[in-house]
Each structure stands twice: as structure tokens, then as C-alpha cells.
């Protein structure tokens, strides 16, 4: 059961990280659509909502529409309604503040660097992607405890301080239902990954 939970965490963080990487690709959205869920809890419901926000079929026009909206919401140019960097919210609306440097440091301590080296390291896709990297480490017996602890710390000290503001911005500004649903899914996944659960997973390791 624990193994299932660890795999679930990995899959969900991978999914979220990919959904915040521009541009959205057909493979990603089809992978999202292909997931199916059993129970009725908040994450499952949020997941269903995101899936139902996808056009059927997902053609080129629909994909372009999503990417144009994603550009408007997060990419720019100019002021965007949902700036996707921690520093913006935590350090006076500037980029590359202490949050970015701290994120970079943690990535280095785990021996990894973002493949896309030119964007600030505290981008939402990178922070979620790092959680998915850590989730992958938890599948290995000798790394499980450290990776779970690191995930707890990373959530508490890096992602959670700004995620609510970012999600609020995304939800109020999104005109495509997909992005509002994505934001709610993000909140739910992170909420479910709370210290109590992580603590219990650590205990079980």
C-alpha cells in the first residue's frame, strides 16, 4: 500500500510539473486524460474536473487556444495575472530573490539541475518537478527517508509560502476552465501531501 502511495505521489507531481511547462503538449494532455480514479476524495474530484475541461477531441486549435491562454496568464510579455515564480510573491515582485537562490541550492545538494537552465529556479514547474524528482528517490529503499523528509521541508519552506497566492491569481484570472481546474488540482495534491501523511510515510519506511 505504501508503495502505491509513493507511486501516486510521483505520478501526480510529474503530471503537475508537466502541466506548468510551456507549451502544453498533446502527449501530456492525453496522459492526463488517460488517468482514472476510484475514490471520491478531493484530489480525485479535482482530477476529474481537469480532465473534463479538456476538449474532445483535442485538436490543434484547442491546443493553441490553451497555449495562448497560458501565455496570457503566465508567460507574458508585460504584467501577467499569475506570475509563476516564488520570488515575485515573497521578495517584492522581483525575480531571482532569495527564494530562487535557495531553490537552486537545494537542487544542487541533491545533485541535479534544471534541464532548462535559463529560467529562474523558483518557477512553479521546477518546484513541482523537483518534488517529483524527490518522489522518484522515495522509490529507492536507501533514499526513501531522506527524500520524504526533504519533500516535507521543501513543501513547507519553498512551495507553500507562495502557492496559495499563485493559485488564487490563476483561479481569478483564468478564462479557460482548464487553468482554474489545474490550479484547484494543484492545491488539492499539495494539501493531501500534508506533514501528517508524509510523517506517517517516513515512519513506515
Amino acid at each position: 500500500m505504501t508503495g502505491d502511495m509513493l507511486e501516486t505521489r510521483l505520478v501526480l507531481y510529474r503530471l503537475l510539473a508537466a502541466l506548468y511547462r510551456y507549451p502544453l503538449r498533446e502527449e501530456t494532455l492525453e496522459a492526463l486524460r488517460s488517468l482514472s480514479w476510484e475514490q471520491d476524495d478531493a484530489v480525485a474530484e479535482a482530477l476529474r474536473q481537469v480532465q473534463s475541461a479538456l476538449d474532445t477531441p483535442l485538436n490543434e486549435a484547442a491546443l493553441e487556444r490553451l497555449n495562448v491562454e497560458m501565455t496570457r496568464l503566465m508567460e507574458g510579455p508585460g504584467v501577467t495575472p499569475a506570475v509563476p515564480y516564488a520570488s515575485y510573491y515573497l521578495h517584492g515582485q522581483q525575480l531571482m530573490g532569495p527564494s530562487a537562490q535557495a531553490a537552486r541550492r537545494i537542487y544542487l545538494e541533491w545533485g541535479v539541475a534544471p534541464e532548462q537552465g535559463t529560467i529562474p529556479p523558483d518557477h512553479i514547474a521546477l518546484e513541482l518537478g523537483f518534488l517529483s524528482f524527490l518522489a522518484e528517490q522515495t522509490l529507492e529503499d536507501d533514499k526513501r527517508q531522506d527524500a520524504l523528509r526533504a519533500s516535507l521541508v521543501f513543501l513547507r519552506e519553498h512551495l507553500l509560502p507562495w502557492l496559495p497566492q499563485f493559485c488564487a491569481a490563476l483561479e481569478t484570472s483564468a478564462r479557460e476552465p482548464f487553468f482554474g481546474a489545474l490550479s484547484r488540482l494543484t492545491r488539492q495534491v499539495v494539501a493531501a501531501d500534508d506533514p501528517r501523511r508524509l510523517g506517517q510515510l517516513i515512519e513506515l519506511s
Binding site: E7, L15, A18, A31, E115, F133, E136
Partner: peptide
């Protein structure tokens, strides 16, 4: 949360997305 009813193929597809 339990991921039941998720096919191995979907799981693989999602894992193939990479962490970045």
C-alpha cells in the same frame, strides 16, 4: 489517495513526462 484502476500504460505515460 489510492491510484486504483490506473493502467500500467497510463502510469508509464505519466512517468515518461519527466521531472524537468
Amino acid at each position: 489517495l489510492k491510484l486504483s484502476g490506473v493502467g500500467a500504460a497510463s502510469l508509464a505515460a505519466l512517468q515518461g513526462l519527466g521531472s524537468g
